[in-house]
Structure formats: structure tokens, C-alpha cells
């Protein structure tokens, strides 16, 4: 059992404040601001004035005017954003899964390169061409990788699928005939929990034959 007195290095009371989620800040009443958490406070303090601006984003070939805060991520704009006319953007294909650039669920293309939309600030996405999973098909004609995902059952619950589809499309645009090893490297930034990987590999191989 850990000893709080030892941990804080002071002979303070066990009575303490617990403040906020994820901040790991526990401050003792008699010794304010003694940090015992392992996680460092990095975000702006709540309630601070947050700068906002209206920017233009080019998403799937369409311009959108959106008001964003400095901290707003590209993913938040795609999923929850509203253009200045009050219309929801509602491009919910990209998913927030790990919230820290680990799982690839939010993968989109920015100027043809894959990007974790949860790790990119919306303001930084100005003057780029953003392609989401919703923008891969040509009208009703699916991208070959989308067809291949369906035919090979390269999806189960489907929650990671948009990220994998975008990563696979980007991989094939750079390397039309990837080996299995190259597919594994190309998709290593994406995580699936249902275990669809073997059929994803099959789908990419199959689509590469049609590229």
C-alpha cells in the first residue's frame, strides 16, 4: 500500500482535492497545487478565452466555411462541425477511437497523404485538399479497394473500416503492386479489434490487380 505522506514528501493531510478528469491533478487542501499525478497538464486551462476564426476547408472537392477554435481538430470539424450557414458537415466516416494518433480510425488524406485527423488542427488544414472515406467513390462507382473490401469481407463491425479503406487507397496510389510485407507496413498505422486483417490483406492484393 502506497503511503501518501511519502509520495508527496510533505506531512500533509489525506484530505485532498481531486480536480478534473485525465489531468491527474490531486491537490491537498493544506498544500495547494501539490501534484501527485503522473500525467502532466498540457491543455489550456478550462475557461480560458479560446481564439476562434472562420476558415475555409476543401473537403472531397467542396469548399466549407467553418468557425473553429485554435484547438479544434480536423476530425472534430469533419464529424461535428457546422458550416457558417448552419449546416452540419456530418462526415462521420472517420472515427475517433484512440484519440491520440495510435489507431488510424480517423485516417483521411490531406493532399494525397494519409493523416490522422485527430492529430491535425483544423486551422492547419487550410489550403489543402482533404479526402475522406466519403470522397473515395466516384458517385455510385466505388473505388476498387472499396469493392474489394466488400467482396473479401475485409470488415466485421466496420468501425475501423473507413480508416483502413483510406490507408489502403493511399497505399495503392503509391504502390500499385504491394507485396504482403508492403501491405503490412502500409497499414501498420491502423488497428482493428475484430481481427479482419487477413481479409484486408486479401482485399488489398485483389484491388491491386485492378489498379
Amino acid at each position: 500500500m502506497p503511503d501518501k505522506e511519502k509520495k508527496t514528501g510533505t506531512n500533509i493531510s489525506r484530505r485532498s482535492f481531486l480536480k478534473g478528469v485525465g489531468t491527474g491533478t490531486v491537490a491537498a487542501t493544506v498544500a495547494p497545487s501539490v501534484l501527485i499525478g503522473s500525467e502532466k497538464e498540457t491543455e489550456a486551462q478550462a475557461g480560458d478565452a479560446v481564439a476562434s476564426a472562420t476558415i475555409q476547408l476543401n473537403i472531397n472537392g467542396k469548399p466549407y466555411q467553418v468557425e473553429v477554435e485554435a484547438r479544434t481538430t480536423l476530425l472534430t470539424v469533419l464529424r461535428d462541425g457546422m458550416d457558417t450557414s448552419g449546416k452540419n458537415i456530418d462526415l462521420t466516416g472517420a472515427k475517433l477511437i484512440c484519440d491520440r494518433g495510435e489507431c488510424g480510425g480517423c485516417t483521411v488524406m490531406v493532399d494525397g497523404k494519409t493523416v490522422y485527423a485527430c492529430m491535425m488542427l483544423a486551422m492547419d488544414a487550410q489550403d489543402t485538399q482533404i479526402t475522406t472515406v466519403e470522397g473515395l467513390a466516384d458517385g455510385d462507382d466505388l473505388h476498387p479497394i472499396q469493392e474489394a473490401f466488400i467482396q473479401h469481407d475485409a470488415l466485421m463491425c466496420g468501425f475501423c473500416t473507413p480508416g483502413f479503406v483510406v490507408s489502403s487507397a493511399a497505399l495503392l496510389s503509391e504502390n500499385t503492386k504491394p507485396t504482403l510485407e508492403e501491405i503490412k507496413v502500409g497499414l501498420s498505422g491502423n488497428t482493428c479489434r475484430c481481427g479482419t486483417y487477413p481479409f484486408i490483406f486479401d482485399a488489398v492484393k485483389s484491388a491491386s490487380k485492378k489498379m
Binding site: V133, Q146, F149, I150, D153, G158
Partner: peptide, 15 residues
């Protein structure tokens, strides 16, 4: 192939 495939690969499937 599963019926939900098209919605899932195009991002249309709503969770």
C-alpha cells in the same frame, strides 16, 4: 458478402 458492406466501406454506416 455482407449486406452492410457498402455502407461500411463508404463511411455511410451510422454508429
Amino acid at each position: 458478402p455482407r449486406l452492410s458492406g457498402r455502407d461500411k466501406v463508404t463511411g455511410k454506416a451510422k454508429y
